[in-house]
Write a protein that binds this DNA or RNA. Structure first.
Lengths: 108, 108
DNA sequence: AAACTAAGACTGTCTTAGCAG
DNA sequence: CTGCTAAGACAGTCTTAGTTT
């Protein structure tokens, strides 16, 4: 029996789900990857994605790591900027600094 | 008498404080700007900045708006990327899309 | 004036257990 | 198997009130 949903998915849940599906992982797998016991893993990740519960930032950080994205990706409102943040994170610190420095010139 | 601090400032608190000081606002003012009653405004913002309490994402969104930064700014680990996100947010949607599209080419 | 914090009230999350697709 | 959710246990935040600088 399905009852009421409660809350609508916030930006974090939306990003979690799309990225998880992109990687072909189950909710349980993501939970186990961040150290949650498999007995409650599905329940927790499900509610994060649906937005009924919200993960603390430290938990969000573990999730971001498991999904191979930077923390800010999970809180980014614009799809194109989110993808850009994800791709930038694959670069080394030195490369990143050089690129960002160059891009900041483009903004003037 | 000052006792124990509890938690250390997380990334959200760190970004909140530096941006607030950059704008020359008091903690109370930021709280009032996001609709908190002035009687509890200082207390709440103080604990967000110190990391003893963590704001829900919807509250973080209001704070980001009050500080004129995108939500992702508050969760961005790298200083240079955070500043870049802030500057990018001043552009129109059309300009942003064009720039991000161009920058994604730079990443290859 | 501005920032910080203890304590109790209050609100949200987590585990368990089980249902639904 | 995978995802979703009710309920009680549990952990967090919020208001108040007052201290510290």
């Amino acid at each position: 029996m399905v009852t009421e949903s409660g809350a609508s998915p916030n930006i974090v849940g939306k990003r979690m789900r799309s990225r998880r599906e992109e990687l072909g992982l189950s909710q349980e797998r993501v939970g186990v990857l961040i150290g949650i016991d498999e007995s409650s893993s599905r329940a927790r990740i499900s509610r994060y994605e649906l937005g009924t519960h919200e993960p603390p930032v430290e938990t969000a950080r573990l999730i971001a790591k498991a999904l191979s994205v930077p923390l800010a990706y999970l809180y980014c409102d614009e799809d194109d900027v989110a993808v850009w943040l994800m791709e930038l994170a694959t670069k080394s610190t030195g490369q990143r600094k050089a690129l960002v420095s160059q891009w900041r010139q483009d903004l003037r």
